[in-house]
Design a protein around this nucleic acid. Structure first.
Lengths: 197, 197
DNA sequence: CGCGTTTCCGAACACAATGTTCCGGACCGT
DNA sequence: ACGGTCCGGAACATTGTGTTCGGAAACGCG
């Protein structure tokens, strides 16, 4: 007994309706009724599947997680097939992925709208990192903090890229990201906020 | 002709009511009616001064900005008076400040609530940095990005501290912050997410 | 003190969105 | 074809927002 087709149809219709709307306006301003209209789904049906708009969003983002995971597997197998130039380069792959889906940028825009969306994406990213980063390491700071730092830096670079340097290539954005994570910034650029001996 | 006392009383009552509520519950869940009840202010009066709950929040946070600016001035003058040990050490001062106002941490808590509050605080922080950081610098990445990076790292450390290591001292949190900003993390701790040659 | 002006209150109102309920009819898997 | 599941749509209760208005109270100023 597979899943009832009607159920599948209803859910994917709602997923796609939400994503489609997110491309056009801020998440917070999207109403359930709009989603229903876009998906051609009845009100009661919606609440039979999801408890709220946020619930729908979360489940929609599980797709993003799957996408990242499969991308990871794909690049790993590429590495195994002696194609090192296609080896897993997840950070850059992520920037490329964003570049391809430029129309979804609105969701990340500043102000009020993107907060929840960003949080949800943060969770997905953190989960991926938690699974792929080495557990044993002689780091200068705790592992949990490293993960949070990488996630937040990724977001900072991403938003800066989209909002202020949209002409940059994904490759350049990734380069900036790596520089920040691996080496930080020179002391004299952040003085006097951070004083060094 | 100074400002009408009634106006001043009304506004500060609303500011304090909001802050008081923020200590108890997530910002998003706070309703205008609750604020009115807490402040003993009439509904129409509220809308005569502020256009919305968000508007009230923003203006409340102008106080935070003033607080940071005066803290900055104070420490600078301390430095001028040959008291170098009290010289401006803003990052650490900020962590200390948060430690003192532990009861407001709820506003920063994860999940849904704190998004807007965090954004607003980000803005204040970025403004301070933009004014105090040197404009001329041979940095490895653009100045705008440095600022965003510092703000986001500060937030990452702050939230990690509050949520997972509340027993840490502000001094230790600040040390972690500096390490991340100035030196980043060792390459082997973030492989294979970031591959290095 | 007293007067004109500004502000406050509070209740009523219009409106928008959420989430629930119910049943006839359509669709599904077998 | 049949029994079980799902969908549609309208009606409803509920909650929160933002506006309006007139009378009462507080204010600043002379």
């Amino acid at each position: 007994m597979g899943i009832d087709r009607r159920v599948a149809r209803t859910r994917t219709a709602l997923y796609e309706a939400l994503l489609s709307l997110i491309r056009r306006k801020h998440y917070e301003l999207i109403t359930v009724e709009e989603i229903l209209a876009e998906a051609n789904i009845g009100r009661s049906t919606f609440y039979a599947h999801f408890t709220s708009k946020d619930d729908l969003l979360k489940r929609s983002l599980e797709r993003l997680r799957d996408l990242l995971v499969t991308a990871k597997d794909r690049t790993i197998s590429a590495a195994l097939q002696q194609e090192p130039e296609k080896a897993w380069d997840p950070s850059r792959a992520l920037f490329e992925h964003v570049a391809e889906h430029a129309d979804i940028r609105v969701a990340l825009a500043g102000g009020r709208g993107g907060g929840i969306v960003r949080d949800a994406i943060d969770d997905v990213l953190a989960e991926i990192l938690r699974k792929s980063l080495p557990t044993t390491m002689h780091a200068t700071v705790p592992r949990d903090l490293v993960i949070r730092h990488m996630v937040s830096t990724f977001n900072a670079v991403l938003r800066w890229w989209l909002e202020e340097r949209p002409e940059m290539t994904p490759r350049e954005a990734d380069a900036a990201f790596r520089k920040l994570v691996l080496h930080g910034v020179p002391p004299e650029t952040c003085r006097p906020f951070i004083m060094t001996a």
